[in-house]
């Protein structure tokens, strides 16, 4: 539910194969109603376990459609495309204008900012008044360095350290122009599945450099959303990328793993000149000592007092992540 709200989805597809589906599906429908989010559709299936009689009950209770065993995937995709087309579902946009839940409001504004079918002023209409500005933290680095895990661990520490405040994550997934993406970061976050975390995923829609064409606007919106911290996570970037030029962030963290290649490859990484903090993650791997020495040297040449921190983000209570948290987040 939280994910559906924050990502401003048009429908939720559910799979349930071991019984309890009547309660499970109708619970989701009821929750959506209670939150005034019943413009979000619900559909799904469960192989042979959902009988025709069950499906009839479920549809009477507000589920849009149940698919039975043997349905080809293409048929489900076709259904979703027609049933949840923006224009086909007239209620979806209209009701969005009168949403009372603040997370849903901001989610809907982010959608408008992303689709770009309104100018920026219009997007901001109804946005919260400027409160105290949050600290914004940009996190970037090559794919597979462990950015998502690291953010999730930082979120855990933040939630523990500040029991009342909220934070936002603007995460990015690569996609072609005009196309969406599988929003994979959300699926691998565990501590960020919390009511005090607002997470939104953007597809890059063909823009190179790690962010989406809408990232700047979305970040400006999130800065006014009453959050204490805003994380911006890029997609995995290449050597030449410098993602936080458009809408600057307060702190830039570059996350690397020891397998960047030769020392010469290291010289080419632009973000090493830009980042405030460089994190060498997976520092339990062989090769980490070499990498740490080479990165230290590289940073020393810059002469800007950039800090190198070694972490093993996948380890619970990693002292490196603790240090990063003290330095960059708290």
């Amino acid at each position: 539910m939280r994910a559906a709200t924050q990502e401003d989805v048009r429908a939720i597809g559910l799979s349930s194969y071991n019984g309890g589906h009547v309660e499970f599906f109708t619970e989701v429908v009821d929750l959506l109603k209670r939150q005034g989010a019943d413009d979000i559709g619900v559909f799904g299936g469960g192989g042979g376990t959902i009988t025709k009689a069950d499906a009839a009950i479920m549809q009477k209770k507000g589920v849009d459609r149940i698919f039975f065993a043997g349905t080809p995937l293409s048929e489900i995709v076709k259904f979703a495309k027609i049933a949840y087309n923006t224009h086909g579902r007239s209620g979806w946009r209209a009701r969005g204008e009168t949403i009372s839940d603040p997370d849903r409001r901001i989610a809907r504004m982010l959608t408008a900012a992303e689709t770009g079918d309104r100018d920026e002023g219009a997007c901001f209409r109804g946005a919260p008044a400027k409160g105290s500005a949050p600290i914004t933290i940009g996190i970037t680095g090559p794919g597979g360095a462990g950015k998502t895990t690291l953010i999730d661990e930082l979120v855990l520490r933040f939630l523990k350290a500040s029991p009342r405040t909220r934070l936002a994550i603007l995460s990015h997934d690569p996609s072609l122009i005009g196309q969406g993406a599988l929003l994979g970061d959300r699926a691998s976050m565990v501590y960020s599945q919390d009511d005090r975390v607002f997470m939104r995923s953007l597809a890059t829609r063909g823009q190179a450099g790690g962010l989406s064409p809408a990232s700047g606007r979305c970040l400006r919106l999130l800065k006014r959303g009453g959050f204490d911290r805003v994380f911006v996570e890029t997609v995995g970037i290449g050597q030449e990328a410098a993602p936080f030029g458009g809408e600057p962030v307060d702190r830039v963290i570059l996350v690397m793993s020891p397998d960047y290649g030769s020392r010469l490859q290291l010289q080419k990484i632009v973000m090493l000149d830009v980042a405030n903090i460089v994190v060498l993650n997976k520092s339990d791997l062989s090769g980490a000592k070499t990498a740490a020495a080479e990165i230290e040297q590289r940073l020393a040449l810059n002469g800007r007092g950039q800090k190198l921190i070694q972490t093993v983000a996948r380890r619970h209570r990693d002292p490196g992540v603790d240090e990063l948290f003290r330095l960059a987040i708290s």
Partner: peptide, 11 residues
């Protein structure tokens, strides 16, 4: 949260 429908199902 959210497990009520699954109580006693499949096991």
């Amino acid at each position: 949260d959210g497990v009520f429908g699954k109580i006693g199902e499949g096991g």
